[in-house]
Every structure is written in C-alpha cells, then in structure tokens.
C-alpha cells in the first residue's frame, strides 16, 4: 500500500495531475490541429513522431530555446507573471475534475473535491481572462491593449450565460460539487436503465440545450473562431500575445492547450457523464474518449465560421445567448421542482 503522502504527490504531479494533463493537453492540440487540417483538405503536422503526434511538444521545446524579449515599456513583473498564471490557473481547475482514482481502478474521485468547487472553476475561468487582460495591458503594445480590452469585453458577454449553463446540471444534482454532479448523472442513468420513466426526456433535452450554450461560451473562453477577435491575427497581430516570445510564449501556448482540456473536461463532466461508462473500461479511458470528442466539436466549430467582430459578438451574446440561458435555467428550475 502506498503511503497517503506519496499517493497525493503522485496524484498531483504524475497521474492524473501535472504530467498526465500536460501530455494530454499536447495530444489534444495535435488532435485539434490534425482534425482541422483534414477538414480543410490539408495534412497538418506530419514529421515529428507518428503522423506528427509530437509536433506540439516539438513546438514547445523550440519556443523554450528562442530568445525571450521583454519590451522596454512593458510592466516587467506583470508581463513575466501572466504567462505563468495563464498556464497554472486552468491546470488548477482541472484538479477539481474527476478523472481517475489512483487506488481503485473503477473509482474516479477528483484530486480535490468539496461542496462548491464548481464555483471555484467558474471563478478560475474568469481569473484566466483577467490575467489575459493584464498580459495584454502590461505589454504596452497598442495591438496588445486592443486585444486585452477585447478579451475583457468578450468575457462580460459570455460569462453570465456560461455560469448559468453550468449551474443547470448542479440544480438537477442538488449539489455544487462537480464530483456529485457526475455521480448524479451515473445514478440517473442507472435509474433510467432499470426503470425508464418519461421525466428523463425533458431533463436530457435541457442538458442538451445547456451543452450547446456551454460550448458556445467555451469557444469564446478559448478564443476560438468565431470568437477569436482578442487574438485576431489579420487584424491586431495576435492581440494580447503580440509582444510575447520565447519561453513566455511557450507557456501561453501550453496554457491554451490546458484550457482546451479544461473546457472539454468541463463539458464532459457536467453534461456527458464524466469518466463513467460501461464496466470493462476504466474511467480514465472514458474520460479521454469523451474529452477528445469535445475537442473535436470545439475545433470543428473553429473551422466552420468566419471571425465575428467584437461588437457583433457582444450584441449576439446579449440578444440571444443570455435570454436563452435564462429561459433554460427557468425550465431547469421547474423540471427539477417537479422531480
């Protein structure tokens, strides 16, 4: 039996913590790049490893070796700190998501779990955008500042629908803990299979609506098309990232990958039943499969649209997304009350 301290250390640093998440994040980037490339009739990364699977790693190593430039006018402390924050915050949030228990092959408790950790995840998502804003602002570049303000404006637009959409399953599960929400999904699936009842249909439909709202908001959170105006390359030259180079840019890229994992992990845990699946396959495999599907959905959307202008994004969000999410939460309340 492993001593508890060692077990916690392994959980945080190796599996399912730091190293596991990092390698999975790079894998997700590869999946996303390869998939978008195939949609666009290209081949995508090809030469490093099998079908270019090591390309994200190679890119990161290359960036580590590059010259790291800090602009003269930049606020040096904030400028150096923010890439770390952008990388560390989504990683912290992933610790709250159930993937796989180390001691029990069929268990899936998260590394840290407590009542209300969903709120923490939401909070961390907002802090990520705040650090993005600070990163762009501290670089003292005009394009950087425009990108930073766009990121902050965008957050104002999608944060409320995102929060509401994520609270939906929590109301059904009567808990604000992601672990409990996953358990509720497993329980109700089990109940439905043993004794089918009609109440499951509206619940499933509502969860589907929540899933769509959540996906749209997470596209904005991840700055993927059509909501990539904070880093629009042809307009403002990668926006808030414009002055970053070398190691810091490498961290930002890794941070983006981890954010992609976090987004798909959230979608998986809140709407797709998390790491639960039919018996002979362990939870971690189910988790990886489901998140990969979410990554594909997110990257498919980014190949399908043109970039929206920031004012169109704000208008669209407040005109359609916010009312839709309020209707959704009302329906959730009513159905949950009837149950």
């Amino acid at each position: 039996m492993i001593p508890p301290v060692l077990s916690s250390l392994i959980q945080v640093f190796i599996f399912p913590g730091f190293i596991f998440i990092l390698s999975y994040a790079m894998f997700c980037e590869w999946v996303s790049r390869k998939f978008v490339a195939r949609l666009q009739n290209r081949v995508g990364p090809l030469y490093t490893g099998w079908e270019g699977i090591l390309q994200p790693l190679a890119d990161s190593i290359k960036l580590l070796a590059k010259e790291d430039i800090t602009p003269k006018a930049a606020d040096k402390f904030v400028f150096a700190l923010m890439p770390v924050a952008v990388f560390a915050l989504p990683l912290t949030a992933i610790f709250l998501i159930p993937i796989q228990s180390l001691t029990n092959l069929w268990g899936y408790s998260p590394i840290v779990s407590f009542e209300g950790d969903l709120i923490i995840v939401l909070f961390l998502l907002s802090v990520i955008i705040l650090s993005i804003f600070l990163a762009g602002w501290s670089s003292a570049n005009r394009f950087g500042i425009i990108g930073a303000t766009r990121a902050a404006l965008q957050m104002l637009a999608y944060e409320i629908p995102l929060g509401i959409a994520m609270i939906g399953p929590a109301i059904f599960a009567r808990s604000l803990s992601i672990g409990k929400i996953v358990e509720w999904q497993a329980q109700s699936m089990h109940n439905f299979l043993s004794a089918p009842n009609l109440m499951a249909i509206p619940v499933a439909l509502l969860l589907a609506v929540g899933f769509i709202i959540c996906t749209v908001c997470l596209l904005a959170e991840l700055e993927l098309r059509p909501f990539d105006s904070p880093e629009a390359e042809t307009e403002i030259v990668h926006g808030w990232q414009v002055e970053y180079s070398g190691k810091k840019l490498g961290l930002l890229r890794l941070g983006h990958d981890v954010k992609l994992v976090l987004a798909s992990a959230l979608l998986t845990s809140l709407f797709l039943g998390g790491p639960i699946g039919p018996w002979p396959i362990p939870p971690v495999v189910w988790f990886l499969l489901k998140t990969a599907v979410c990554v594909l959905i997110l990257s498919n959307a980014s190949a399908l649209f043109a970039r929206l202008r920031i004012d169109q994004m704000l208008g669209g969000s407040w005109r359609y997304l916010a009312p839709l999410s309020i209707l959704y939460i009302m329906a959730v309340q009513i159905i949950a009350g009837l149950m």
């Binding site: 949609l39 666009q40 009739n41 190949a303 399908l304 649209f305 043109a306 970039r307």
Partner: peptide, 16 residues
Amino acid sequence: AAHEIGFDTLFYYIWR
C-alpha cells in the same frame, strides 16, 4: 478576403 475575416477554411478551399 476570406482569410482577412478569419475564415481560413474558405481560404484553403478557394486556393486549392
């Protein structure tokens, strides 16, 4: 033009 508005998929198809 498609590339400038961030629609890279259309850009790739047209150039192909």
